[in-house]
């Protein structure tokens, strides 16, 4: 059982037009940038992306949107600095947006991965994001019903993997990655380093290999860090 594939291009080669794809990451940490860039080279159409932000040119997600490859973005906060492609495409009527509260966004994905039919949340009650959704009173408090969310593919960024696809994360690289890894038919992980089976401590593995279909090693240079962003 060896989940390692040689290149990002190979890892995304079978994705068809119209596919739904979850992409992990929040801020720069945890975005599988090289998988996204390989996807962009495929020049696909009508993709549905499930990603918390709006994407930038640097992370490639904004580039995919700018290319017109994306029909719909399911997101929470697509209004951060650099999310220019979302703004242009949405205001031009060329991109459908589904905006969710961030906790609802991740819990829908968690429910999708955990085999649940949905959940009731107090978040969003009485707001326009709950319009048209079922509201139920539980112990005197109103809750909104939310459906599970799954995808055809998930792009995951992790720190280390073994050849079976067990994944370890570092720092705030986790964010949506361990959750999305449970909720897609084909899960592809971009990692800094692939190590032999048995080299990872069972206690540090956050995503067990049962969830992971493909692993690509894309080493990062840990000595020469990127120049700090202006603050």
């Amino acid at each position: 059982m060896d989940r390692v594939v040689a290149t990002c291009d190979e890892a995304v080669a079978d994705i068809p037009n119209g596919a739904s794809i979850m992409i992990g990451g929040f801020g720069p940490p945890g975005i599988p940038v090289n998988l996204v860039k390989a996807l962009r080279r495929r020049k696909l159409r009508d993709l549905v992306l499930i990603y918390c932000g709006g994407g930038t040119e640097e992370d490639g997600i904004g580039g995919l949107i700018a290319d017109g490859a994306v029909r719909k973005l399911i997101t929470s906060f697509p209004t951060h600095p650099g999310a220019t492609a979302v703004r242009e495409k949405y205001l031009a009527g060329e991109l459908e947006l589904e905006v969710l509260p961030q906790g609802t966004f991740v819990e829908r994905i968690r429910a999708g991965g955990a085999g649940l039919g949905g959940f009731y949340t107090p978040t969003g009650v009485g707001t326009e994001l709950a319009e048209g959704k079922e509201v139920r009173i539980i112990d005197g408090r109103p809750y909104v019903f939310e459906l599970p969310l799954r995808a055809d593919y998930a792009f995951i960024k992790a720190y280390r993997a073994d050849r079976w696809g067990n994944l370890v994360y570092r720092r705030t690289m986790r964010n949506f990655n361990p959750i999305m890894a449970t909720a897609a038919n084909i899960v592809i992980a971009e990692v800094d380093e692939v190590v032999p089976v048995g080299a990872l401590s069972p206690e540090e593995i956050e995503t067990p290999c049962i969830f992971v279909d493909r692993v690509v090693e894309v080493p990062r240079d840990w000595i020469r860090r990127p120049a700090p962003a202006p603050r």
Partner: peptide
Amino acid sequence: DPDLVNANGDYVTLIPGASLFDHA
């Protein structure tokens, strides 16, 4: 640390006793 930001997108530090976890 390129893998450590807060929700504002600022690179931050951790205090002793800090913990890290996923979005769920």
